[in-house]
Design a binder for these strands. Structure first.
Lengths: 217, 217
DNA sequence: TCAAAAGTGTTTTGCCTACACCCATGA
DNA sequence: TCATGGGTGTAGGCAAAACACTTTTGA
């Protein structure tokens, strides 16, 4: 195989959601060799009529039925031996959505906690760990106002605190957490309430529009 | 031109330094059409025997004579019409060094303030603005302990403050700035002094080893 | 002795932290 | 009425912010 300036590129898409404060990622089970039975990130090969973004958008729609409104490039991996068969460059994108999701039943798709991944094919374990670290930083700095994407219009403060504790891997005092979010005008009360399975109903909150980058907690 | 899955990729390298607190980037003057006379980011085409990193490293060495010890991927641009002649994907890397630089005299190379760019070819103005914003964020959060890369072993506190003010686009009180850096153990005094052109000589400082990510100012 | 730049301390303010009890609902 | 989870206020400590004069050097 001689030297060439032509490259094959696949676009892999990490699709995330939050459930009970826990971040989950959508993976697809591989049905053929190599790595039969292992889980992988959904993806497609880039043609010369497409951009990374159009492919990532298509992948998100085809697999999860979502129209991605926030999507970003995480990293492009160019190591020579990512794939045992041939050299493929991987452009990895992330998409966050609060749904609704319609998983494509032609594939075997499943949500996994990002901190409890199954057996993964190729270098996807390394990739997912790396891009989840990027996602965490992005959330902590609220880059691109990403936090909003994880939540529906209204949500309870405890849901939000659970999410924040999952991301930062720290525990916060309920009173202080609420106080800060409210006095600093990140969220505001609505008149609605959530019925819980048990116990007192929760107030529902929404983000204020002046949620700013680099300013949370 | 039919549909194909083969792509040409160029690796562009932003090479940065700091001079008197001001961040500068190294650009190359284009001598042929298209964009003759415009300035562009140095770069090379990727072959299938190379990774992005090896190409970026080669470009940094070939143009500026530096062996990059900190280098990172900024973004990979995949729009269809970046280049008027053919579709080329651009993988953009950044390199920071405090030198010494040996600019390759086969090319016309020049340092420009990142906030005062000359006329640029292709989409390089958009690229540089975008990657400089990423660099700023990276510096502000001290990701990957990048701040150290901009400075020699010892430096004056005023140099450092000037750099910080350039990056954050804010002005800080000298006393508070020093106090914070010293009490929080980011930097420490050395016994050396810098002779200035005029005025009292400055003390020289060095970074302590416990400079941490996400913790500065 | 003057100009230029570097160095230095104190007070006030506001934010973060720690901490424990009452409330609303459904079973 | 009890179990479950949700909601709330205050006091102390510490770090950030505001603020101006003195010191060292070379010309």
């Amino acid at each position: 195989m001689g030297k060439s300036y032509y490259n094959i590129i696949e676009v892999l898409t990490g699709i995330y959601k939050v459930e009970d404060g826990i971040v989950k990622i959508l993976l697809k089970k591989k049905k053929t060799n190599p790595y039969e039975g292992a889980w992988i990130l959904p993806g497609n090969i880039l043609s010369n009529e497409e951009t990374f973004e159009t492919v990532a958008r298509t992948t998100a729609y085809d697999n999860a039925g979502i129209i991605a409104n926030k999507m970003w490039q995480c990293h492009v991996f160019s190591q020579l031996n990512r794939d045992p068969d041939e050299r493929i460059i991987a452009a990895v994108y992330s998409v966050v959505s609060e749904g609704p999701f319609r998983l494509n039943s032609d594939y075997e798709l499943k949500w996994f906690r990002v901190d409890k991944l199954p057996k993964l094919g190729y270098d996807h374990e390394k990739i997912i760990k790396e891009i989840y670290e990027l996602l965490r930083k992005k959330i902590i700095h609220n880059d691109d106002n990403i936090i909003k994407e994880f939540f529906p219009d209204v949500f309870t403060l405890n849901e939000f605190q659970g999410f924040w504790e999952f991301i930062t891997e720290e525990v916060y005092d309920r009173r202080n957490f609420r106080k800060k979010l409210i006095t600093q005008n990140y969220i505001k009360e609505t008149s609605e309430q959530a019925k819980n399975k048990t116990g007192r109903p929760s107030k529902l909150y929404k983000f204020t529009s002046d949620l700013e980058e680099d300013s949370l907690i």
